[in-house]
């Protein structure tokens, strides 16, 4: 799956590894359970570490590991399943995660702006051809009513500025 960041396809340096077995060299993404079990060992590796988090998990469990994590992958098993939006906001706004926050699964252009507003900055999409459409989707709205951690000005702040 092409990985999109900042509107362009970029290489994905992370190798997905399973719950058990030896770790390859280089950047890896481990399942959440493995991170929780082997956190200290994993942090000791000299390569970027990522974790894939199911959307049923309480992301607060990640807190002690975040300093060692370069990547958190959140899951959209179906685009209608919106749990990862809350996980993303908690990671960014509550837990202060500043690494890559990646959306994986059923990631559609009509959702991507919501994802960005919740703190995602990387997307695994089905076809590289969709990139222009994703860029367009991000520009669909300029008006935002509610504050999130994305820093976009809200209507309320714009109104106050105009007053």
């Amino acid at each position: 799956m092409p990985l999109v960041k900042n509107g362009a396809v970029v290489p994905d340096p992370f190798t997905v590894v399973e719950a058990e077995g030896p770790l390859p060299e280089g950047a890896v993404t481990v399942p959440l359970a493995r991170l929780l079990a082997e956190g200290a060992d994993l942090a000791g590796r000299n390569s970027p570490l990522g974790v894939a988090v199911p959307n049923t998990a309480d992301v607060r469990e990640l807190a002690p590991h975040l300093p060692h994590l370069s990547l958190v992958v959140l899951d959209f098993p179906k685009f209608r399943d919106g749990r990862a939006y809350s996980q993303a906001r908690l990671l960014r706004e509550r837990l202060g995660f500043t690494g890559e926050l990646r959306a994986r699964g059923n990631v559609l252009r009509d959702q991507v702006l919501f994802m960005v507003r919740c703190g995602f900055d990387a997307f695994e999409i089905e076809k590289a051809d969709d990139i222009p459409a994703f860029a367009k989707a991000l520009a669909t709205y300029s008006i935002f009513y509610q504050p999130t951690g994305d820093g976009r000005p809200t209507v309320a702040s714009l109104r106050a500025g105009h007053a």
Partner: peptide, 13 residues
Amino acid sequence: RQWSTNHPEFTFL
């Protein structure tokens, strides 16, 4: 109304 309009977190409840 304003807070809930296009709420990015709560549109796929």
